[in-house]
């Protein structure tokens, strides 16, 4: 029994780095979802498509000899364009937001396969991806490189988002998401703000896709399955862990932390000694419920203390 616990514990320790790496990469997706769902208040379902788009574009470009940095840039732009089109469908064609996102997701499915010339996957094994290049050059193990690179990207993205939403344009976008009527009454062209906001969030999803494809050395048409659920779960976990009314940059960091915690919980579920792998989803759900209830109990406890004080 003790041996079992020991093995499990060592297994968990060993897997924390990979969980953090996964959490950081998928955290960038969660930031994109945060911008559309929370800041812009638009239920944009297209991230499943744009994440895969980012991965596929990067994979095809790098496998065909394009410089990886340029490939990442092109991936982000293609994601932004897709997001802008979704925004156009919603604002100018008056298609409900959810449907616009779903339509874009469908369209991108075909587009992604076209980009892969009809194949359903593109391999990046031994290709000059950012991760492989840095790993070879610095002679550091891939799992460590993953964490460093993704953490850098996450920090850059948070800084960029924080700066952007403090500008006049960014504040106008926040106002649009917070109170559409007021924004229009203050002379804000809310249509263009929605389009820009969705372009940004989908550009981030594509960036995440690009990084994930490099991490997995593979881009497939189904690599983004369930992305939106993963993104939303990360956001909600982050919001529960941290107290309300934090400064904006802290909220963004909370999203990344939520994503890492989500992955660590999955990893924990995988290491449960008596479970089969297909129990993973059930165990993840149970662990998440436990995590949520801890925070709720904590809050109730604080309220009780405040009453007695």
């Amino acid at each position: 029994m003790l041996n079992l616990l020991n093995v499990t514990f060592m297994g968990i320790l060993r897997l924390i780095p990979s969980g953090i790496g996964e959490g950081l990469a998928w955290g960038i997706l969660a930031l994109g979802v945060y911008i559309s769902f929370r800041v812009l208040d638009v239920a944009d379902m297209s991230v499943d498509g744009t994440l895969a788009l980012g991965g596929v574009v990067t994979a095809v470009l790098v496998a065909n000899g394009t410089n990886v940095v340029l490939a990442i840039l092109i991936s982000v732009i293609s994601g932004a364009v897709a997001g802008a089109i979704t925004g156009l469908m919603h604002t100018k064609l008056k298609i409900p937001a959810i449907l616009s996102g779903i339509l874009m997701m469908f369209a991108l499915y075909s587009v992604n396969i076209h980009i892969m010339s009809g194949k359903s996957n593109v391999s990046l094994l031994k290709q000059p991806t950012l991760l492989n290049l840095l790993s070879d050059w610095l002679q550091i193990d891939r799992s460590v490189i993953n964490i460093i690179v993704f953490a850098l990207f996450a920090a850059l993205v948070i800084a960029a988002i924080y700066w952007f939403f403090g500008t006049k344009l960014g504040s106008a976008i926040r106002a649009t998401g917070c109170n559409l009527q007021m924004a229009r009454a203050q002379g804000i062209d809310t249509d263009s703000k929605v389009i820009i906001g969705l372009a940004i969030s989908n550009g981030l999803a594509a960036l995440a896709g690009s990084l994930i494809a490099q991490k997995d050395s593979n881009a497939t048409v189904d690599m983004a399955s369930g992305a939106i659920v993963i993104g939303l779960a990360s956001i909600v976990i982050g919001e529960l862990i941290f107290k309300k009314n934090l400064p904006f940059w802290a909220k963004l960091a909370g999203v990344i932390v939520g994503s890492i915690i989500y992955r660590l919980i999955i990893m924990l579920a995988l290491q449960m000694p008596f479970a089969e792998t297909y129990d993973m989803k059930l165990i993840t759900a149970i662990l998440l419920v436990l995590a949520m209830s801890v925070t709720v109990i904590k809050k109730r406890h604080h309220k009780k203390e405040a009453k007695h004080a």
Partner: peptide, 8 residues
């Protein structure tokens, strides 16, 4: 479809 992911 994802054999490269596995290898990676």
């Amino acid at each position: 479809n994802s054999i490269s992911t596995v290898a990676s």
